[in-house]
Design a protein around this nucleic acid. Structure first.
Length: 869
RNA sequence: GCCGGUGUGGCGGAACUGGUAGACGCGCUGGACUCAAAAUCCAGUUUUGGCAACAAAGUGUCGGUUCGAGUCCGACCACCGGCACCA
């Protein structure tokens, strides 16, 4: 006799124990079926799971379990993105070592993941802060150094002058250090970079092949890479009257609009331009010098205030450049709207065709010459659209695209410049001046300079047993750790004390999951599992992580370790988890946010909310916006408490039911109650059926019409749910269809032998369809229905097409496009018979009588539209 | 400013290929059970009119294409997200 009352906790723990004992989700390269690699972005071990994790990992688990049931050899791994700044912050405030804080968190979160019943192969777990993981990343880096793909150059960091340390961007709050409160300064120090720009073109083109990535992600990446085509050319420094500079100095500029060069009325250098000192005339040097130091000191806030505004700051250098197109000199300015990091750090300025140049020209009283004819009635400033060239000598009359080509051809023929493609994408700065990260494997020798740590000396292990003295990185504070000898000449040398950006670890973990324990970064198993067949994670990683992920895959490919250009064929970005916010505002304007769990909603008779009160004191609270769950709005819901109260299946079910995966999911306590109610109902109905004794074998030929109709619903639902999960990723509509079927089943009271057989088939189908979403209860119901093997290994149900054939269809009858009646009929009704039957209907006659029929539209078995005059 | 996305009942959402708008769930209303409550079960629930049959209106706004538009086209509005002086 099976249990009558649904007790989720007891069932879930028992089923989870069974999965563990049977190693149910262990993945094996020799497994049967086509491989399917389903990957969810690994979490940072911050302390506890939040609802975002639950949503992300439930989606991955549903997809994994579905494909497993479809007969694929599924790999679904999990791991920990374990390096990172929060561990250091926690170490400083709690006086613990970052390592032990991290390992404790991992322990706890792993328990939470297991309690949610995710089908991971834990034998492949990756923890990125362990030397056995990061040693391979160090090895790869030393190889990239030798290939010139890793290099060192000066780069700016945020320097806290009080704490004497480098700050991460997130440690700078309103231009001040998070701990010291001191104004943060810019400081230039040597740092390591990876040459991702060498891959810019292929990273851009690869996007076109990623058919199953969200358009939003691809667009963001395209914009980030920012490819532009134009020309680069040189202009000679000259005097106001066009006399060449005796030093023969030249300034190179980049432009995407060479066709507008006749409209160049001045030129601009970035404040950091290397030629600035040489071209500045003595008369202007004081003003130029003042501007440069001001630009350097300009805080982030000032810069932001200027963006989008009309104010364009700059000063005249005293020098002129010779415009080869007009053969006339133009004044050369310095301005901070020109960036040293893009193009050549110098531009030709054409105010007539560029809004920024227009703004600058206006505020500095520089001339404006239009070189593209704006449309009649144009009243705007710079005109950036298409039109015929004017004021441009031999370009006059040409449209923009042709004029560009002709101008570039002319530059090349006269040896002045050439066609040039530029990218917005910058090389990836991987140095961080932090402790809790992977040590950069470099030794600095006074003779041999930067030397990669030889392979046999790897890994360079980060000491874990450290104490923080203030905010300084313990390995920077410890002179002993740094001491070493040069691997090339044996001289006394020092280790690099910077560590890698943590994006480095998360760029290749997906490949390491394929080959746990490999004696190299990867082995042959990676070729079997890769590429990832389904990747799932937050849209917040659309640019950085997903770009580095695609870049690193190409590095692995070029090192011969993997095949193919892209690491993942399908990407799904789940939406945020949001919730209502509630607050009370004190008289002094101080806002206190109240957690939704402590609030009761008051409603009018129609159920429309009219207010909210705090349970604790019965007083009113204000209703705020629906926002992303966060500590600052106090609208977070702890998954742990929900799992304890309702069970993992219920939490999983609600997460998948409330919204499609790519939209934001609004948390609702009553919605969770609804999910719980559904599970209890399913439980009692299946148990009631199962306790009703054994049933006969189903004989599809012997069914009465009601039984056939019930069975048709079952097989229609099987077809829909498979399509919803497997193709559309609309888990919410899959669940809705299953709920609908179970509602019909509860009304299907047929007590006869074949009635029971139909019901048995239906419940088995429901249990199998629900299994990816709520696997624990399904495993128990499966057994209750008399099935012997484990459900996790059972096949996905197949829709029986013969059972789906309809004996009746509903034909919608419209008159002039308005629905006037419905007609139950046999399928395959002809146009004439349908019209005949429709015209007999009273409500149709009412709208047709006395009017000539102009036209009849017939969609077989669906619709008949009678158009009357 | 540029790029992308979204607008449908009291709420979350469904309608996949232009063909029954509002599936499924929540909430609410009424009823059954109960001394009572909870739980559970049954019925109803876009708006307006009507006892009902039914009719009219209705998918952000305005217009268009079509026998027929939530869906396609044009213009606009609102909100959300990304990038932001990239020449």
């Amino acid at each position: 006799m099976a249990e009558q009352v649904y007790q989720p906790a007891e069932i879930e723990l028992r089923v989870q124990q069974r999965w563990q004992d049977e190693e149910a989700f262990r993945a094996d390269e020799n497994g049967r079926g086509e491989k399917f690699y389903c990957l969810s972005m690994l979490p940072y071990p911050s302390g506890a799971l939040h609802m975002g994790h639950v949503r992300n990992y439930t989606i991955g688990d549903v997809i994994s379990r579905y494909h497993r049931m479809c007969g694929r050899n599924v790999l679904q791994p999990m791991g920990w993105d374990a390096f990172g700044l929060p561990a250091e912050n926690a170490a400083i405030s709690n006086n613990t070592a970052p390592a032990s804080w991290t390992y404790t968190n991992i322990q706890h979160m792993k328990t939470q993941l297991k309690r949610l019943g995710f089908a991971y192969d834990w034998s492949r777990e990756v923890t990125t802060c362990k030397p056995e993981y990061y040693r391979w990343e160090q090895l790869m880096f030393t190889r990239l150094m030798k290939q010139g793909l890793a290099y060192r150059k000066d780069s700016e960091v945020n320097w806290d002058p009080v704490d004497q340390t480098v700050l991460a961007n997130e440690q700078v709050v309103d231009g001040r250090g998070w701990r010291s409160g001191a104004l943060v300064e810019k400081k230039s120090i040597p740092q390591w970079f990876l040459r991702i720009t060498d891959y810019a073109e292929q990273l851009l083109q690869g996007l076109d092949q990623l058919e199953h990535w969200p358009e939003a992600v691809k667009t963001m990446q395209r914009n980030w890479i920012g490819r532009s085509e134009g020309a680069e050319f040189a202009m000679s420094v000259c005097s106001e009257d066009g006399q060449r500079d005796p030093r023969n100095l030249q300034v190179r500029v980049y432009t995407t609009r060479p066709d507008t060069a006749f409209g160049m009325t001045y030129a601009v250098l970035a404040p950091e331009h290397p030629l600035l000192d040489q071209v500045t005339t003595p008369a202007q040097s004081v003003r130029v010098g003042a501007f440069v130091s001001q630009a350097r000191a300009a805080s982030e806030m000032d810069r932001l205030a200027l963006e989008g505004g009309l104010e364009k700051r700059g000063v005249f250098t005293g020098a002129y450049l010779f415009n080869p197109f007009t053969e006339k000199p133009v004044p050369l300015y310095i301005a901070d709207y020109v960036l040293m990091a893009y193009g050549t750090g110098a531009i030709m300025a054409v105010p007539g065709q560029d809004q920024r140049d227009w703004d600058f020209a206006k505020s500095h009283n520089l001339p404006i010459i239009r070189t593209v004819q704006p449309p009649p009635g144009w009243e705007g400033d710079a005109f950036t659209g298409d039109g015929p060239a004017i004021n441009s000598a031999w370009l006059d009359g040409l449209e923009v695209a042709q004029a560009k080509q002709k101008a570039i051809d002319w530059l090349e023929e006269n040896d002045l410049g050439e066609r040039k493609v530029n990218f917005r994408l910058r090389d990836w700065g991987v140095s961080r001046q932090r402790y809790w990260g992977c040590p950069i494997p470099v030794i600095y020798c006074p003779h041999c300079l930067a030397v990669p740590v030889p392979e046999e000396q790897l890994p360079v292990v980060l000491p874990e047993d450290v104490t923080f003295m203030g905010v300084q990185s313990p390995i920077k504070a410890d002179p002993e750790w740094r001491k070493t000898t040069c691997p090339q000449c044996g001289a006394d040398a020092e280790r690099e004390t910077d560590t890698f950006d943590t994006f480095m670890e998360s760029s290749w973990y997906y490949a390491r999951y394929c080959c746990p324990g490999a004696g190299a970064q990867l082995d042959e198993r990676a070729r079997y599992w890769l590429p990832v067949d389904q990747y799932i994670g937050g849209i917040e990683h659309a640019i950085l992580h997903l770009m580095y992920f695609r870049f690193y895959h190409r590095l692995l490919r070029d090192a011969g370790m993997v095949d193919g250009n892209e690491p993942a064929t399908h990407l799904l970005c789940q939406g945020m988890v949001v919730a209502e916010t509630y607050y009370r505002e004190a008289a002094d304007g101080f806002v206190r946010w109240v957690n939704p769990a402590e609030v009761e909603i008051t409603r009018d008779a129609k159920g429309k909310p009219v207010g909210a009160v705090l349970r604790a004191d019965g007083g009113a609270v204000s209703i705020g916006a629906v926002e992303k769950m966060s500590k600052s709005r106090n609208n977070g819901v702890d998954p742990q408490g929900l799992v304890e109260r309702y069970g993992a299946d219920c939490v999983r079910l609600f997460s998948m039911f409330a919204a499609p995966p790519d939209q934001s999911l609004e948390w609702s306590d009553s919605g969770v109650e609804g999910a719980s109610r559904f599970l209890r109902r399913i439980w009692s109905q299946v148990m009631q059926h199962a306790n009703g004794g054994s049933c006969q074998a189903l004989d599809p030929g012997a069914l009465n019409p009601d039984q056939r109709e019930m069975r048709r619903l079952v097989h229609d639902t099987i077809a829909k749910v498979g399509d919803d999960i497997g193709r559309r990723y609309t888990f919410n509509t899959a669940i809705a269809a299953i709920m609908e079927l179970s509602n019909h089943l509860s009304k299907f009271g047929d007590p006869g032998g074949q009635g029971k057989a139909v019901r048995q088939e239906a419940w088995l189908a429901v249990v199998r369809m629900l299994n990816p979403i709520t696997p624990h209860i399904c495993e128990a119901l499966w057994a209750a229905l008399g099935e012997k093997g484990p459900l996790y290994a059972a096949p996905w149900p197949a829709a029986d097409e013969s059972a789906r054939v309809r004996s009746q269809v509903t034909l919608v009858v419209q008159v002039n496009g308005k629905v006037r009646a419905r007609l139950e009929a046999e399928p395959g009704l002809s146009r004439e018979s349908a019209l005949q039957l429709a015209l007999d209907l009273e409500n149709v006659q009412r709208h047709v009588t006395g009017k000539p029929v102009h036209k009849v539209i017939h969609v077989p078995d669906r619709l008949l539209n009678i158009v009357v005059g």
